[in-house]
Simulated scan of single mutants.
Amino acid sequence: MIQSHKNGLFSIQQVADMTGLSKQVIRKWEERYGIIQPKRLENGYRIYSQEDVKMLLKIKLLSEQGHSLKKSILLVKESEEDPEVPLPKEETSNYEQWNEYVFRLLEKGSHCDEIEINFILKQAYHHVGLESFLTGIVLPFLKEVGRKWENDEWSEYQESVSSLVVRDFLIQIRRNYHYRESAPFVLGACLPHEYHEIPLHLILLRFMMKGWKTQLIGASPAPGSIETLVSKLKPNMVLLSATTTLPFETDSQLLRRLDQFAEKQTETAFYLGGQGAVTYVSDYQPRSIHVTNSIDDILK
């Protein structure tokens, strides 16, 4: 991997892997519009900086949102020349926060290279610490993976490999994290028929940094298992997650039953989060389960 200075330098193939743009398109945008000025090695090969990659990503995103290519380039150039000039969509500003680890993960993720993804995650975790690792590397990477999959830039296999490697790495961190025996206990659980467990791993790690003992019920637990474990383990808090509305569509009485169960657990606080839950509870408002999509509301 080309990496000549602290900001990182990438070959055109690496840039293509990171952005989803073909090498031909990258060269065309460079030569026709002059939007980036890559350096050249002695052999003539182009090398691109992180700032070059970020600019390409911004232009690509704006064009996907309906702007013409010329308009997208103009908007990005104006924002680069004057930081006070905002871009039309807030998502483009997220690229400014990306660091080299995010770029490298995207490159290896495009090739479904599990070993390299895991190696980069390990490097990043030990280099920046847990909080920065979660907020500055894992979250941006997963959001971009999801965006690429939704836009058919990545196949289901590419999305699955990248997400599963991240999930397994987060599990390793949680298993090796130390806590006091007297620590408060939080139990996290996906609802039955909900398979997206990574958001819970991220939330539970935030709790661990605050000194909590944590445990997770995995994806799509059997009906009744949440109630059984809560009754047995007596956690101080239960975090329920539904990224999709599938749990409620599959079992229309699920939330009502869980709410009735939570009402009887006077020593345990229940929270329900995820976009699916927030969407669904517009039709049914639970009395004993607090619905929120903000971990800060729970941790305060």
Rank of each mutant, 00 (worst) to 15 (best):
L74Q: 15
L57R: 13
N7M: 07
E81A: 15
V76K: 09
Q265T: 04
K23N: 15
Q3P: 00
L240H: 05
Y157S: 14
T92M: 04
S132W: 05
I289F: 00
Q14C: 02
Y284I: 03
P247S: 02
P199N: 01
G146T: 08
E144M: 05
L255P: 07
S72W: 00
S93R: 12
E107N: 15
E194P: 02
L200Y: 02
P38M: 02
Y125W: 06
G274A: 03
I226Y: 05
Y179I: 10
M237R: 11
Y179V: 15
N7T: 14
I226A: 03
F185E: 06
G218Q: 05
K234V: 07
E91A: 12
S79T: 08
G34T: 10
A269D: 13
G136Q: 15
M55H: 09
Q3C: 04
I35K: 03
S68R: 08
L57H: 10
I173A: 06
G211F: 00
L202P: 09
N176G: 14
L87A: 13
H67P: 04
K39D: 13
L75M: 15
K60Q: 15
M18E: 10
T243R: 09
H67S: 09
Q285R: 11
N43S: 13
Q37S: 13
Y195Q: 11
S294E: 14
T92Y: 01
A277H: 05
Y95K: 05
K77L: 07
Y177P: 03
L56Q: 09
P192H: 02
L254T: 02
M237I: 08
Q14F: 00
K213C: 12
V102P: 11
E144S: 04
E263A: 13
F169A: 05
K234F: 02
E156Y: 12
D17K: 11
E144T: 05
R256M: 11
G109E: 11
I226D: 06
G109W: 00
E153N: 13
E181N: 10
V128I: 15
H5P: 01
L57N: 07
S63C: 03
L69M: 12
L142V: 10
E107Y: 15
V238I: 04
S225D: 12
A222V: 13
L57E: 13
L130G: 09
L170C: 04
G224V: 05
S160D: 07
T214H: 06
S49L: 03
V138M: 04
R175Y: 03
Q158S: 07
P199K: 00
G276K: 08
T268Y: 00
L272W: 03
H193I: 05
Q3M: 11
L216M: 07
A269I: 14
S163K: 05
Q65H: 15
A242D: 12
K89C: 08
S11A: 08
K108E: 14
F119P: 01
Q215S: 10
R27H: 00
W98F: 15
